[in-house]
Amino acid sequence: MQIVPLYQYPQYAERVIDWLWQAFGPEQPRAFFADIIHHSQTPGALPLTFIALDGDKLLGTVGLWRCDLISRQDLTPWLAALYIDEVARGKGLGGIMQEHVMGAARQAGFDALYLYSACRDYYERFGWGYIGDGLEYPDKTVHLYHKAL
């Protein structure tokens, strides 16, 4: 298995867009997620989208973004849009992908990462510290996390 920037394998972009749209925002147009992915494929620049591949099988995706929560633009960068295909879940890939983004953030000169989630307990298992609640547009309470690098 390898984790690589999506820009190295653009043939997977449509599937990543579908995953993000279905998992994180079916109430929003698919074009919104396509725009995010389109603008996250510039080598050496944020935002970045990574994918996990086993041969030619796409297993998951995760992003390293400047901001993932519009109400908290004071925090940067963010681990964002972690998604593992159903057939690959329960095998530790989520943790591996988090570590990959942490390494990419360190390499880019950052000393911390942030993320938000509607769930509790998952990210705490990986050492993320809960720092309070935030507001996802327009009125959904989410949990904010911090990880020192």
Rank of each mutant, 00 (worst) to 15 (best):
H100M: 07
I36G: 01
H100T: 07
L46V: 04
G60A: 10
M102K: 15
Y9V: 11
M97R: 08
V87C: 05
M97V: 13
L58N: 11
Y122A: 13
A112E: 11
Q41F: 11
A23V: 06
G90P: 03
F32M: 14
L75F: 11
L48R: 05
Y9L: 04
T141G: 00
W65Y: 15
Q107I: 06
K91I: 01
W19F: 01
Y130L: 15
A13W: 01
A105Y: 00
E136H: 13
E136Q: 15
D139A: 15
F24T: 06
A23C: 11
V4F: 12
Y116T: 00
E14M: 01
E136T: 02
F32V: 14
E124N: 05
D111K: 08
L144W: 04
G90C: 04
G63R: 13
L48A: 14
A45Y: 03
D133W: 05
A31N: 07
L20V: 00
I70E: 14
L113W: 02
W21H: 15
K91Q: 15
D74C: 07
Y130M: 04
L6Y: 08
G90K: 04
D121R: 14
C119T: 11
Q2V: 12
G94K: 07
R106F: 03
H143G: 00
Y145N: 02
I51A: 06
A104R: 11
D35M: 10
H146W: 04
G60P: 11
Y137T: 12
Y9R: 12
R72D: 05
W78L: 05
W65A: 09
E136Y: 09
A112H: 15
Q2Y: 02
V4I: 14
A34E: 13
Q107A: 11
D74W: 10
V62L: 00
L59S: 09
L149H: 11
L75Y: 06
H146L: 15
G60E: 01
L6W: 08
I3A: 01
G94Q: 14
V101W: 02
P29S: 08
K147D: 01
T61L: 04
T141V: 13
G132E: 06
I3N: 10
P5K: 04
L59H: 07
A88R: 08
W128Y: 00
E27R: 11
R30Y: 07
A34D: 07
F126T: 07
E124W: 05
H143C: 09
I96T: 14
Q107D: 14
R30M: 00
C67S: 05
R89M: 10
W78Y: 15
P26K: 15
G103E: 12
V87A: 14
I3K: 06
T49P: 01
A13Q: 09
L93M: 06
